[in-house]
Amino acid sequence: MHDFNFIQPKSAAAAADALAGAEDGQYMAGGQTLIPVLKQRLAMPTDVVDLSAIPGLAGIEVSGGAVRVGAMTTHAAVAASGAVRDAVPALAHLAGLIGDPHVRNRGTLGGSIANNDPAADYPAAVLGLGATVVTESREIAADDFFTDLFETALDDGELVTRVDFPVPDAAAYVKFPNPASRYAIVGVFVSRAGGAVRVAVTGAGPCVFRQAEMEAALSAEFSAEAIAGVAIAADDLNNDLHASAEYRAHLVGVMARRAVAEIA
């Protein structure tokens, strides 16, 4: 990898300043995606701004009907959290499916959603639970946060500090992993809160998305049968070495039905 300046600010403001002052700066949270990318020289930032020394960015709190997870909280911490398991077991389950145990000990929620890999797991939970992404300057609704392939609503230098996941009545995440990378070929997160149902799909398209037809059908009748007839168009789905768009479309249906069946 190319060499870079390593900066370890002690506050969010200092981090933003460091990034702003860099010729080509890059935030690093847990580094589990960024470091392999740097090693392969696919990115060559002049400055890496490490977020691990900023106090208050890690931690889990369940209050006011929400699970509040600090941006620098590791996947392992979420997976192991009794509070998360009690409040939203699907969220803990999802965190435990990311990467592998070692990656989960370093990788963070904030890093994952800010990167917005199309096959990452966390975006499905954020969108599937209708979470709120909190930055140092504002709150962004999940529906507005994930905008495109590796793109989010974050401004340059804007730092995710926390994600607030509302506690649903029930939720489930079912994932069909890539056998090599462990990323999702397709992952579907389904939640039900009152009459509202959310179905968020990761891995299938260029960016995590909600499946409106399934949500409508499940709002009317929450059962796997209710969405058996929903046809998923392959047109806009990913088509690559690991899976064709048609297969991904098929898997969206299967994973969604299985997620619903877990809840129903």
Binding site: F6, G31, Q32, I35, K39, H102, V103, N105, R106
Partner: peptide
């Protein structure tokens, strides 16, 4: 894989400075 502050990590994906 090594242990860093008591947990397992991939030392190829951690900067020495970290």
């Amino acid at each position: 894989v090594i242990h860093l502050d008591g947990v397992s990590v991939k030392s190829c994906a951690v900067l020495a400075l970290n």
